[in-house]
C-alpha cells in the first residue's frame, strides 16, 4: 500500500459519506413535498382542525423544515431513527431485524450468483461462438427476460406445490438451524440468482472479450499456453475492474430491489416492511428505509471503486 493509493481510497470514502449526506437531504425533501402532512394522513377522515393542530404539535411538525431535518439527522447519527407513526414502535429496532433478514437473503443469493456468473462468463469466453457459449447466453437471457414475480409464481407452483421440495412461503424464526433457514428461503434465492446472473455473466463475458483483443493475449497464445490458462491468467486480471463494478451494482440490487420477491414470498425483510409502511403513509419509516437503501447502494459502489483502484497495477506499483 502506498500513499497515493491511500489518498485515492480516502477520497472515495469521503465522497461516499458526502453522497449519503446529500441523499439524506433529498430523502427528507422528497417526503416533505408529498401532499398533505403526516398528521393529516394519520387522522384521515376523522380529522378536525383541533385534533390536527394537537397532533402537529405533538409530532413537532410546526417547527421549520430545516430544524426538523437537523433534528432527524442528529437522531440518525445517534442511532435513533425515530418512532413509527402507525404503531409507535422504535424504527431502529424494527428495521435491524428486517435488515438482517434482507441481508441474509441477499448475501446467500450473492454467494451463489457471483461465482456462478464469473465461471459461466469464463466458460462462455473459452467456448466463444460454440454451443456452451450459446446455451449459457440463451439460458441466462431467458431467465432475466421473465419478470421476477412471474418467475416466483412459476417456481412456487412447480417446485413448492407440485413437487413439494421447498416451502412456498419463506418464513423464518429464531429456532431454525441454518440449514432449515436456507431451505425456507431456497425459492427466493433461486429467483434472485436468476435475475442477477445474466447481467453479471454478460458483463464478465464482454469485459473478457474486450481484453482478449489485446496484443498481450496474442503474446500468451504464441507462447503455446492453453486457452483456458490464457483467459484465467492473462485476461481475467485485466478485467477485474469492470467485472467488480457490475457485480457490486447487482449486489446493491439484491438488497434494494428485492421488494417484489419479498412480497411474493411473504419474506419478513426490508422490502416488505417498506411497502407496508408506504401504504400507511408512515413517513419516518419510509425515510429511514430510503436512507438505509441509499447507504447500501453507495457503500457497495464505493467498494467497487476501491477494488478497481487496488486492481490497477499502475497504481499499485508506481514508477
Amino acid at each position: 500500500m502506498n500513499a497515493y493509493i491511500a489518498k485515492l481510497v480516502a477520497q472515495r470514502i469521503a465522497l461516499g459519506l458526502l453522497l449519503i449526506f446529500l441523499v439524506s437531504i433529498m430523502i427528507f425533501l422528497g417526503t416533505q413535498i408529498l401532499p398533505g402532512d403526516v398528521a393529516q394522513a394519520i387522522l384521515g377522515q376523522t380529522a378536525t382542525p383541533e385534533s390536527l393542530a394537537n397532533l402537529r404539535e405533538e409530532l413537532g411538525l410546526n417547527a421549520s423544515a430545516t430544524e426538523r431535518y437537523f433534528s432527524w439527522l442528529t437522531g440518525i447519527l445517534h442511532g435513533d431513527l425515530g418512532t413509527s407513526l402507525s404503531n409507535g414502535r422504535d424504527i431502529a429496532s424494527a428495521i435491524s431485524e428486517r435488515l438482517g433478514n434482507t441481508l441474509f437473503l441477499a448475501s446467500w443469493a450473492a454467494l451463489i450468483s457471483v461465482p456462478l456468473a464469473i465461471i459461466l462468463g469464463l466458460v462462455s469466453v473459452l467456448y466463444r461462438g460454440r454451443w456452451p457459449d450459446k446455451v449459457i447466453s440463451a439460458a441466462t437471457l431467458s431467465a432475466i427476460s421473465v419478470p421476477e414475480f412471474m418467475m416466483s409464481y412459476i417456481l412456487m407452483y412447480y417446485v413448492a406445490v407440485q413437487l413439494g421440495w421447498a416451502p412456498s412461503v419463506a418464513m423464518l424464526n429464531d429456532r431454525m438451524s441454518l440449514l432449515e433457514k436456507l431451505h425456507a428461503i431456497s425459492l427466493p434465492i433461486a429467483v434472485l440468482v436468476m435475475v442477477v446472473l445474466a447481467h453479471m455473466m454478460r458483463m464478465t463475458r464482454a469485459a473478457l472479450l474486450n481484453v482478449m483483443q489485446s496484443a498481450y493475449i496474442e503474446t500468451a497464445e504464441l507462447k503455446g499456453i492453453r486457452r483456458s490458462a490464457v483467459i484465467w491468467r492473462h485476461a481475467f486480471p485485466n478485467s477485474i475492474a469492470p467485472i467488480v463494478n457490475v457485480v457490486m451494482l447487482n449486489m446493491a440490487y439484491l438488497v434494494v430491489g428485492v421488494v417484489v420477491v419479498e412480497v411474493v414470498f411473504v419474506y419478513p425483510g426490508m422490502g416488505q416492511y417498506l411497502v407496508d409502511h408506504v401504504s400507511k403513509r408512515d413517513v419516518p419509516v419510509v425515510q429511514a428505509c430510503g436512507l438505509i437503501f441509499a447507504a447500501v447502494y453507495i457503500f457497495l459502489n464505493m467498494v467497487a471503486d476501491i477494488v478497481s483502484i487496488l486492481a490497477n497495477p499502475r497504481l499499485r506499483h508506481p514508477k
Binding site: S214, A215, Y216, E218, T219, A220, E221, L222, K223, G224, I225, R226, R233, H234, P237, N238, A311, P313, R314
Partner: peptide
C-alpha cells in the same frame, strides 16, 4: 502447434509495450 509455440519457436512483437500483460510482473511473463 501449442507444443511448438513458446518452446521450439518464439516471437518478439513490434510493440513490446502492448505485448506485455500490464497486470503481471515481467519475470512471471
Amino acid at each position: 502447434l501449442r507444443s511448438l509455440r513458446g518452446a521450439e519457436v518464439t516471437y518478439v512483437a513490434q510493440s513490446a509495450a502492448a505485448a506485455f500483460n500490464p497486470a503481471k510482473c515481467l519475470m512471471d511473463q
